[in-house]
Write a protein that binds this DNA or RNA. Structure first.
Lengths: 139, 139
DNA sequence: CCGATATTGATAATCATTATCATTTATATG
DNA sequence: CATATAAATGATAATGATTATCAATATCGG
């Protein structure tokens, strides 16, 4: 996995600094988790105490650009990032209205709907589906 | 429609001030549009030149709480509001990656998926589906 | 009309994020 | 290994969307 990422960075002439390596490690150690910039910053500081918050923001953005991370926005208005996992091509989020926990489900139900929308003249590139409700613990 | 909204406000002991009336008019004149707070402010000022931006934010939030408006967040991270329309119980958004235009489609395709998720212990209250692509003009 | 209290507007404060800039550092090349 | 280039860093100022504060005003029921 790291090799693929290394290749992506090289492809774009991006440097693999210690800070970027650290942030990448944080994300790889938290697959499926949707971490805010602040959360990434806290975790990265444990390994690289001198890392700066501006670097975290920049790196998260850069990694999103090259396809290493997936960036989402939820109701708080804050961006959250998760490691891109090509095995799970597409997944949806369930957001618990009580505890805020974000769970993922896997499904590919939307192809028919996309087809229908494209017949109206649109060109669909991607989609995002969120469910709001209560998780098993809060129900 | 206004009568229903009046009733909702009364139900909660909220007062119907001129400013709130103005903002409500703005939203009712723009059905289906997703207006940012700033956009609402600009439109409201034309009718009530003295209205304050803080009031716009507060009122949009208050109207969302009582179910008069529906509040969404998109990739800009900014909140956008639209008038709640009970005839269109559920709709989805298509966001053009080029011009940013937001179009709505109506579909109720997701009931099966919600059933399946509920069998896993979740309780689903609502869902939100966004498509990203290019509109007919930008394609 | 009066009183209680919700609501307002201006503006300060907050927060997540981005811009700025001097300094540091990764990497390619000889 | 040494060097040059320019990408990247960290601290912090700046930005923009939104919320808090507070004195003043307005709504609504009695």
């Amino acid at each position: 996995m790291k090799k693929i990422i290394d290749a992506k960075l090289k492809e774009k002439d991006y440097r693999l600094t210690d800070q970027r390596r650290t942030i990448l490690d944080v994300m790889l150690k938290n697959p499926g988790k949707h971490l805010s910039a602040e959360e990434v910053f806290e975790k990265a500081r444990k390994k690289s105490p001198g890392i700066g918050i501006a670097t975290v923001y920049r790196t998260l953005e850069k990694f999103t650009e090259i396809g290493v991370l997936y960036k989402s926005v939820f109701e708080s208005g804050k961006f959250r990032y998760e490691i891109y996992n090509s095995e799970i091509h597409h997944h949806h989020h369930i957001i618990c209205l009580n505890c805020g926990k974000i769970t993922e489900v896997q499904d590919d139900l939307l192809n028919d709907l996309e087809r229908r929308i494209e017949m109206q003249g649109f060109k669909i590139i991607d989609h995002e589906l969120k469910f709001y409700g209560y998780c098993p613990n809060c129900k």
